[in-house]
Amino acid sequence: MLKYRLISAFVLIPVVIAALFLLPPGGFAIVTLVVCMLAAWEWGQLSGFTSRSQRIWLAVLFGLLLAVMLLLLPEYHHSVNQPIVEIALWASLGWWIAALLLVLFYPGSASFWRHSRTLRLIFGLLTIVPFFWGMLALRAWHYDVNHYSGSLWLLYVMILVWGADSGAYMFGKLFGKHKLAPKVSPGKTWQGFIGGLATAAVISWAYGLWANLEVTPSVLLICSVVAALASVLGDLTESMFKREAGIKDSGHLIPGHGGILDRIDSLTAAVPVFACLLLLVFRTI
């Protein structure tokens, strides 16, 4: 299993970096849309759709929805000040606050959505659609001035999330004693959680020194810490839905890593929350 995880990581990381820096906005949007369609395919299982045909239709409908939203945006890659983008990012902020409550009060909180496919589909919509627009909004950062500014931002968020996750794992292994959310994800501890946040803070400071991100250190730190918190919540939320669905992995697309959702669960929360804070709350556009 470890061998497959390492091989997949060595293949995927260069592909992700190449997509960030080499693809034009249109190509990047298409790739992100395909990733979101695959995520929607896997979310179908979390929503209770066991039929392959139903999940295919769900992925197609998600893809059509995102494609139509893209077509409604004139010059979408030049500006993120579009109602569709802003609504999606604000909705994400609201959804992850609600998701926090669902996780905190689980399994009691599951009583009102456990038997509703509609609600679980809405949760998926609120997870995947804002993630799509968060990716594109960050990629569009000052694109007219510097084609790579947005790529640096997205790379930063990804490194932040991966670093926080690695820090949490190491601190949890070394010092973990007190469970963070035993009813949702028994392996996570408070010590790992704090270690992950500390790692995120160090990454924020170091990356800010290396890359000219054109944001004050205080704003960067606030956005980074909240994004790191959101990444943990994204992981816990998917774990909660998988637990209810009775599955270990959302899929088997990536050898040794599970499904697409298993790899981007933290990013589905961190990316739109970070974009919302940076672009809409602090207005660093």
Rank of each mutant, 00 (worst) to 15 (best):
L209T: 12
A269P: 09
L46Q: 04
D262L: 03
A91M: 13
S79R: 05
R117F: 12
L236I: 07
H147P: 12
L154R: 10
W210G: 09
G27R: 08
M170D: 10
G196K: 01
F274G: 01
A98T: 11
L152Q: 13
L101H: 11
L277D: 00
H78K: 13
L152Y: 15
V34T: 02
L71M: 13
V15L: 15
N212C: 10
R117M: 13
W57L: 15
A270Q: 01
F274V: 08
A275V: 05
G192T: 04
D144R: 11
E244M: 15
A67N: 11
F123T: 09
E238N: 10
S204K: 00
P24V: 09
S250R: 02
V232P: 02
A91H: 04
C223D: 08
A39W: 02
G192F: 00
S185D: 01
I17Q: 02
G195R: 00
H257C: 03
L70M: 14
H252I: 12
V103D: 07
Y76D: 00
G124F: 00
K173L: 13
V80R: 05
V103R: 08
I285V: 14
I247F: 03
G187W: 10
H77N: 12
A98V: 13
A19Q: 03
S111P: 09
V281Q: 03
P130M: 03
A19S: 11
F123G: 02
Y148V: 14
S51E: 14
V15K: 09
H147D: 13
K242Y: 01
A98N: 10
F62L: 09
V34N: 08
K242R: 03
P25K: 05
W141K: 14
V232L: 07
G134Q: 05
A168K: 02
C36P: 03
L277W: 06
L121V: 10
L233S: 00
K188D: 03
G208R: 00
L104T: 11
L280T: 03
W41R: 12
P83M: 02
I260S: 01
S116M: 00
G44L: 06
G108R: 15
I222F: 07
K183Q: 14
L261F: 04
L197I: 15
A29D: 02
F132I: 03
A206K: 08
H77T: 09
T127G: 05
R120T: 06
A99N: 08
L267F: 14
S149A: 15
G234S: 07
P14C: 07
I194T: 08
E238W: 05
F105P: 01
W113Y: 15
L65C: 12
S116G: 04
V161P: 01
V273W: 01
H147A: 15
G150Q: 07
I260F: 07
I7P: 02
F171M: 12
E86V: 14
A211N: 10
A110N: 06
V85K: 01
Y156K: 04
E214A: 14
W141E: 12
T284H: 13
Y156L: 06
P186I: 10
P182R: 06
V215Q: 08
K242P: 00
K179V: 10
V157Y: 09
A40K: 01
S166P: 05
L70C: 07
R114E: 13
V34S: 01
S92C: 14
L261K: 07
